[in-house]
Amino acid sequence: MNKMQNPETLVIANANKMTARKVQVHYGTNHAIKDVDVDILDKTVTAFIGPSGCGKSTFLRCLNRMNDTIPVCRVSGELLLEGENIYDPRVDPVQLRAKVGMVFQKPNPFPKSIYDNVAYGPRIHGLTRNKAELDAIVESCLKKAALWNEVKDRLDSPGTGLSGGQQQRLCIARAIATSPEVLLMDEPCSALDPIATAQVEELIDELRSQFSVVIVTHSMQQAARVSQKTAFFHLGHLVEFGDTGQIFTNPGDPRTESYISGRIG
C-alpha cells in the first residue's frame, strides 16, 4: 500500500481504501440512503457535497459506524475497509474507529488540557510504552495539525480555552494521534472564520500524504479546493461520483449541474 506518491498527478491511481456497495440506511421507516456505491481511495481527499438533508453526513457516519449509537438506524449493503466488511458481526466498532477517525462539525475538545486531549487516543489504545513516546506523539500530532507553535508553551491549559479554529485543529490532532487510516470530517469548517478555514484546508491537503480523507462540506468552493474526488448526494441518492475537476467543470447529470450552478439546494 506504500506506493510512489506523485502530488502532481491529478489522475488518481491509488488503491481502494474503502468500498461501499449498495449501501442502504433506514432511520425507522425513513429510507435515508439508497443504493450508494462509492470507492474511497488511499491517500486521497474525497468530498461529499449536496443540499442539506441529502444524507451525506449519514453516509459519512456509516464509514466508522458512528450510526450505531442511534438505536433506530439500520445499515445494510456492503461497506469494506481494505476488503473486510466493517458491518460484519465480528467487527468491534471500537477497533474500527481507531482506524477510521472522525472530526466533527463543531469543535468538541474534551474539557481537559491540550496535552490530554491529544494523548487520550494513544493512551486508551495502548500505543505508547512510556511518557517520552507519548510526548513525541503529542508533539508530532500537534505539529501535523499546525498547532504546535501556538500551544507548545501551554500544553497544560484547557483545550476549551482555545479559539474556534485552534479547537478544530486540536480535534484534528486528537483524531490523527491514533494513526488512523481514514479520516472522516463532517463539515469541519462550518463553525470557523475564513482564516481558520484556510488553515484547516491547508492541513487537509497535507494530511492527504498519510491518510485518505473524506470530507463533508456545504461549500462547493471548498470541495473544489481540497478534494480530488467528489460525490454529489441528492435526496439519499448518490447522483454522481468522479474526479473533482470533472464534476465541477463537466458534470454528467443535470441535477449536479443545477446544484453546482446554484439552482437547487
Partner: peptide, 22 residues
C-alpha cells in the same frame, strides 16, 4: 453535551471509557 460522547467514541473509546472518562 452529546458532542463529548461523539468525540470520545470517534477516537475509538469504548462505551465504558466514554462514560467513565468523560
Amino acid at each position: 453535551p452529546p458532542s463529548i460522547r461523539d468525540a470520545a467514541l470517534g477516537i475509538g473509546a469504548s462505551k465504558m471509557q466514554t462514560v467513565f472518562h468523560h
